[in-house]
Amino acid sequence: MEYKGKKKKAPVKKEVEVLGETFEKGRPEGEELGGWRQKLESREEKLRYLQTGERYWFDKDWYGSERRKNPA
């Protein structure tokens, strides 16, 4: 799933690009209902998701409450 950008007027610059909608239009039905994993298509997207969504295990510099120098 791609990030969607949105152009907006800004006071100093003429225009800036900000993050647009992060939801999809409509309501999923049938098999689609709840099927969120299909939204990640390429391997890069999947790996990126693992590093952010599953950061508890896979983000190199974010250990949450367990931030420590020496792993157990």
């Binding site: 799933m1 990030y3 992060t22 939801f23 709840g34 969120w36 994993r37 939204k39 990640l40 998701y49 952010t52 969504g53 599953e54």
Partner: peptide
Amino acid sequence: ETINYLLGGIFRA
């Protein structure tokens, strides 16, 4: 994985 996703969405599960 789905609980994580439902609570935060795809951009910040």
